[in-house]
Amino acid sequence: MEVFLQVLVNGLMLGGLFAIIGIGLTLIFGIVKVINFAHGEFLMVGMYAAFLLTTALDVHPYTTAIAVIPLLFVFGMLTQRFLIQPLMNARDDHIQIFVTVGLSTALINLALLVFGAEFATTPPSGLRTALEIGPVRVLVGQLVVFGAATLLVVGLTLYLNNTQFGRAIRAVAQNRAAARLMGINVNWVYIVTFGLGAACVGLAASLIAPLYPTSQTIGTYFVLIAFVVVVLGGMGSITGAFLGAMVIGLIDSFSAYYIGSDLREVAVFTVFLLILILRPQGLFGGRQTLSHVS
């Protein structure tokens, strides 16, 4: 029973981690209608930045968020402006896929060039200390990630529904042509949205860096899971992504324990493929999603 509880809590904590990465991805997909195949590499860039800042300035890794979030925000905006925007009207989406795949390939190899193949370990600053809550143990850092993911979901939902710019973002997602006729600067909305999505990853990077060693492939690992999360939650649904992350976290944790840790990816991807095929609109995706694609 205690083992079961521990595996359950591990799963939820892992879910928090997946959620905080997936939210930005689903935001970008829901509004800009582009799947950012370089999303994981955004996380990698953020984590390297957090690592460099933490070690160079000798500060708490969380403090680096002050710099990493704006950095990623700007990086996201530039990506949209110079890589995605010129292709927004491309006749088929292949080209958009190639651009973000190319960006991903370039960033991974750039990291390899700069940092080499070794891991970069950000000082944990006490965040890998375990807390005993009743029969289960969780890391301080994991709890923070979980809390931050929850706050991010609530905050973004409020922002999109209750502010003028938030409504403009939704309007663009629902009908780009009409939004333009309302006087909304559609390209700017896309740029800001991409920036916001990347900024979410920036926050994630600062929170995750002290928990996981950074390498050039860390993005590939996390982003594939983040895609699963986003598809499960219904592309473009922010609360959906959160719930999806929990489900995947649990599957990952339980399959690692009960099936074998080298096959947990197979379990996760099997679920992913089943969902994609049986319910492409996602488990939780319904009318409330931002996008109208599926």
Partner: peptide
Amino acid sequence: GRQLFPDM
């Protein structure tokens, strides 16, 4: 063709 925001 009207062009409303369907989910608003």
